[in-house]
Simulated assay, not measured.
Amino acid sequence: MPLSEYEQRVLEQMERQLSADDPKLATTLTTPRRRTGRKIIVATVGVLVGLLLLVLGVVQSSAVVGIFGFLVMFGGVTYAVLGPSGAEGSGPQGVVNDSGHVTPHARQRGRGKARGESFMQRMEDRWDKRKDGGL
């Protein structure tokens, strides 16, 4: 069932608000994770070798070989699922404006610390700005 025009406008407004409030989260949610073929092949080989070692450990009644096989399988799955996949240095490139273009932004880390504000005070200030519509 397609969205109504009102629902589409509200969704677009929410997307713009998310991009303005937290560009890093917006980039993370909209950027598809790329898994290279090499990474998938290495992970698959790791899982298969680990499974072979696990079965070999059961056949030979060797707990050490079975545990090692399980660890190799676990490592293969972990390698496939976690970690960056060729996206070093990626992250938020800026803020998406109303026209849909990305405007580069300067890093502003620690700006509240320079004024001597606590973390909670900065969060309260941001909340007040959002409530007042002063983003």
Rank of each mutant, 00 (worst) to 15 (best):
S90V: 01
G46H: 04
D125V: 03
V42F: 08
G69N: 05
L53I: 04
V45I: 14
G66P: 02
P32V: 01
H101Y: 09
G66E: 03
G83V: 02
G112K: 07
E12A: 15
G86A: 09
I40Y: 10
G66I: 02
G50T: 00
V95Y: 06
T28N: 12
G46V: 01
S85R: 04
Q8I: 11
G57W: 00
M73E: 08
G100K: 12
V96S: 01
I67S: 06
L29A: 11
G91Y: 07
G66Y: 07
V42Y: 05
L56M: 14
R130A: 12
R33A: 08
R107A: 14
R34Y: 06
Q93S: 12
G134I: 03
Y79K: 07
T78G: 14
P23S: 04
Q17W: 07
S90G: 11
T28F: 09
M14V: 09
S99M: 09
Q108K: 14
E124Y: 09
G134Y: 04
R33H: 06
V102T: 13
M120T: 08
R109S: 10
Y79F: 14
Q60I: 05
V59S: 03
P23V: 00
M73C: 12
R111I: 14
A20I: 00
G75N: 11
V49H: 05
T78K: 12
T78D: 05
F74N: 06
H101P: 00
A26G: 04
P84K: 15
V95P: 00
V77Q: 07
G75H: 05
R111L: 12
P32F: 06
G112A: 14
L54F: 15
K39I: 02
G89N: 07
D98A: 14
G50E: 00
A26M: 03
I40E: 11
V42Q: 03
S62L: 07
R122K: 14
I41N: 04
R16H: 11
G57T: 01
G75R: 02
K129A: 13
S85F: 08
R35T: 09
D21L: 13
R109Y: 09
K113Q: 14
S85G: 13
S118V: 04
E5L: 11
K113E: 12
T30K: 15
L29Y: 05
N97R: 14
V49W: 04
F74S: 12
T44V: 13
F74V: 08
Q8S: 10
L56S: 15
K24G: 01
L51C: 02
V95K: 08
G110R: 12
S85M: 09
Q93L: 11
V81I: 15
F74G: 04
A106H: 13
A106W: 10
Q93H: 13
M120P: 00
F119T: 13
D125R: 15
Q8P: 00
V10W: 02
Q17L: 12
E5Y: 08
V81S: 09
G37L: 13
S19E: 10
V58P: 00
V42T: 08
R38S: 08
M120Y: 10
G57Y: 01
V102F: 01
R38W: 12
L18V: 03
L11T: 10
V102C: 03
T30A: 13
L52V: 10
Y6G: 05
V49Y: 02
P92F: 10
G86N: 10
G50W: 02
